[in-house]
Amino acid sequence: MHSSVDPIEKLTAAFEKLPSIGTRTAQRLTFYLMKADKQEALSLAEAITELKEKTRYCSICFNLTEADPCDICSDSSRERSIICVIEEPKDVLALEKTGQYRGLYHVLGGVLSPLDGIGPDNLKIRELQERVKNGIEEVILATSATAEGETTSAYLARLLHPYSVNISRIARGLPVGGDLEIASKETLIRALEERRRVE
C-alpha cells in the first residue's frame, strides 16, 4: 500500500519546495496532475527537463538563453554602445516589451542587499566593469527604486565614474495611473526632483 502512494508523496514534497507553495497547494497540484490527461503531465515534465538542459546564462550579459551568446548580444542591429544594467533576467522581458530600448543588457543577478548578505562579490559587477572598458558610451542603471536598488545604482555610478561613459539612472516618481494623494513623501520628492519641461 505504501509503495502505491509513494509517487504522490514524492511529487507533493517536490511541489512544496517551490516558492509560495504550502502543503495544501502542493497536494492540490499533485492531484490535479493525477486526474489530468497523461499528455498534459508529460509535457509539463518535458518542459521542466528542457528548462534545465537547454537554458543557460549568456556569457556576455548573463541573461537566460538557449544559445550562447544570447539573441540580444548576437543581434548586430542593436545599439552596441549602450548597456542597460538590470537586476534579473525577467527585467529583460519587461524592458523588451516596451519596444523602446534597442541597446544591450547586463544582468547583475540581484541587488546589493546587506540584509540578505549580498555584497559586490555576489553580483556580476566585475564583468560589467570589463564590458564598460570596451567601447561602451552609455550605461543606463535600471535597478528597482527600492532601497537596495538605489544603493546598487549609487555604488555602480561611483564604480564606473572613472571610465569615460555617460551614466544615467531611469526616472523615478509617480507610476503611470498612480494617484498623487496616496503617493508617499519620498515618491513625490523624486517626482518633483526628476520633473521635466513639457514641450
Binding site: L112, P114, E148, E150, T151, A154, S184, E186
Partner: peptide, 17 residues
C-alpha cells in the same frame, strides 16, 4: 505612511550595511 526614509543611509553601500 512614511515618516523618515533615511535616504542618506541608502546612498552608499557601506552606510546601508
Amino acid at each position: 505612511s512614511s515618516i523618515n526614509y533615511f535616504p542618506d543611509l541608502k546612498q552608499e553601500l557601506e552606510k546601508l550595511a
